[in-house]
């Protein structure tokens, strides 16, 4: 198992780097931000493209509507704010003016999940994947590290249609090769195995890497797949791997209700019923704390994934 950590960086910086690159490459890309330019790492785009950067102040609902309007005229708007204000606060605006209207808006959301940390539950949205994936026509992407977030940011500009791109605040292991292409809807096989498949997304991918190393020491040969696109789900990859290992674990920094595990369980129950264990938040709100403390508190550590894998195997 070779997972080389290139460095430790935040995924939001990957977004900022991708957006900056898009600013140089694609004159149709515009960016809108609701008073969180620094937090979203949008400063480079703003500096290099002042005419294509739109500060809207703290008015997220208006920002979504304005972004929808800018698509009329041929632009590709990227909106930036925290995940909570990108989804729950503006759900109806996204539903009507973006998704139902089929507008080419990229909703880019930082500080998602528990790892936002000390700000506490008001800001730690754990329901956003569910809300976004329920919208017809919405593509939902949750990259795992800096390099993948940068690649995803650039990839969604070339994709026609509404996209929800979710990333986070803390510095985490950056291990995706810089030149790895990002293909929307195509799962990434990180390690082959025979005993159990772990499907992980976002920050939990690296936790799963740690988990499979731990499992290896116990003689368990786990397969690990990075599901960076929650919707459309790479059903072929999920079924192929589950069919081989005969039991699965899902891992995500999100409520169990509505998240990745829910999507995979739905697919497997229809096509290939198998033991499934889910590592996710269990229908509670978060609280203040450091990211690491919170992941441990809510059962989202590598050890929790490893234990879930053993439970899944025992149920085969």
């Amino acid at each position: 198992m070779e997972f080389k950590v290139i460095n430790y960086q935040d995924t939001r910086s990957g977004f900022g780097a991708g957006l900056a690159e898009l600013g140089r490459r694609n004159p149709k890309v515009v960016a809108l931000c609701a008073d969180l330019t620094g937090s979203l790492k949008m400063e480079v785009f703003e500096k290099e493209n002042p005419d294509r950067f739109f500060q809207v102040g703290i008015s997220e609902a208006h920002m979504i509507g304005m972004a929808a309007g800018m698509t009329i005229g041929g632009y590709i708007p990227f909106t930036g704010t925290f995940a909570n204000f990108s989804t729950g606060r503006v759900y109806d605006q996204i539903r009507q003016s973006v998704a139902y209207s089929g507008k080419n808006v990229k909703i880019c959301a930082s500080h998602a999940g528990l790892t936002l940390g000390e700000d506490g539950a008001t800001h730690q949205i754990l329901e956003d994947i569910g809300m976004m994936k329920m919208l017809p026509g919405m593509t939902v992407i949750v990259p795992c590290d800096y390099n993948q977030t940068k690649a995803a940011t650039m990839a969604i500009a070339d994709f026609e249609g509404p996209v929800y791109l979710r990333f986070g605040r803390p510095k985490v292991a950056n291990f995706t090769p810089e030149d790895q292409p990002f293909i929307i809807g195509k799962a990434v096989l990180l390690k082959e195995g025979a005993d159990v498949t772990i499907f992980a997304t976002g920050h939990m991918v690296w936790k799963a890497v740690e988990a499979i190393q731990q499992l290896h020491e116990k003689g368990v040969n786990a397969e690990l797949i990075n599901i960076h696109t929650i919707k459309p789900l790479d059903e072929e990859a999920v079924l192929a791997s589950a069919g081989k290992t005969k039991c699965v674990v899902t891992a995500e920094e999100h409520q169990q209700n509505g998240g990745l595990g829910d999507s995979i369980a739905q697919l497997l129950s229809r096509r290939m019923p198998l033991p499934i264990e889910m590592v996710a938040v269990q229908d509670v709100f978060g609280q203040s704390g450091t990211p690491e403390q919170l992941l441990a508190e809510y059962g989202l550590e590598h050890i929790d994934i490893a234990e879930a894998a053993l439970r899944a195997i025992s149920r085969k």
């Binding site: 920002m63 929808a68 309007g69 800018m70 698509t71 708007p77 003016s97």
Partner: peptide, 11 residues
């Protein structure tokens, strides 16, 4: 609608 119109106007 006003937000959408503003977006279209800025475009």
């Amino acid at each position: 609608g006003l937000s959408v119109a503003i977006g279209a106007a800025r475009a």
